[in-house]
Amino acid sequence: MIEARGLGKRYGEHTVLAGLDFHVGRGERVALLGLNGAGKTTLFRCLLALTGFDGNLRVDGEPVTPGCKDIRRKIGYVPQAAPLYDMTLSEFVAFFAGLRGVGIAGPAAILADLGMPLERTGAKALAELSGGMVQKTLLALALGSGSPLLLLDEPTANLDPGARRDFFRTLRELASDATLLFASHRLDEIELLATRVLVLHEGRLAFDGTLNGLWRTTEARPRLWLGVPDGEIGSVTAALETCPSVSALRPDGAGLEVDVVGETTLDVLLTVREQGLPVVEFRARPPSLEHVLARLQTDGPAEPATEERE
């Protein structure tokens, strides 16, 4: 669905994308990972033919030519920030469905599935809708136009946790057949949705593989969050500091965040149980993005780390 060969982009002296080579197959769900400025949005702009670039880029077999609009019929796009239009929801949907050359029926049916039937919400001004509702509308437009490729540029960055969960549940249910390339800072979202991860670092492809492969390559381990009652943080910290499975721990909200050594998460929990520590709750957390990127930067190979696709 996407084929990039030597894809590069410079703004003056600043290199944003430095000769990327990658391929995204039909039906794949690929997460694009990277810190701000890594080149994620520029890559999307290249795919959407919004900017010029070096190298070759193809979408669904068609070469991407900067400024050419036809390639965008193949791409449904959901940006990070909801665009501000002084329109009602119905006007907005009709306008963009019209531009994409599809009827309003497709997006309207998806909106109805999402609990936003136009008969009920269509008269509301876009500005009156919550961020989650607007992002759902953009998703409905992207899905409802039948585009085979969905590009999502940190679509939930401005949403609260509930809206974020809703958005991804919807995406998983409704975009089961679409090819997906989505940028995110959140490893939990990636874990939920992606079958493959591309890591961009300073314009270079630093990793291409599965999420588990990324953990292995970077020796990243899940973290544990332990809920501890007030006044007990000190005693639990002291007890866990002696546990060989714990490499570091720090207070975090109403509890402790624990970095686990190796694949020994269960050992930490067993220690908690055996010592009768006053832990009332626990949650597994994915490794931090900063850790992953730092490892790729410092220990990573010169060539992008790749692994056998699953």
Binding site: L48, L50, G67, C68, K69, D70, R72, R73, I75, Y77, P79, A81, A82, P83, L84, Y85, F96, L99, R100, G101, L138
Partner: peptide
Amino acid sequence: ETGALEYLLAQPVTRRE
């Protein structure tokens, strides 16, 4: 400024249009 242009240009339209 509002992001409306970027989203519009991501649709099948040319800048001339």
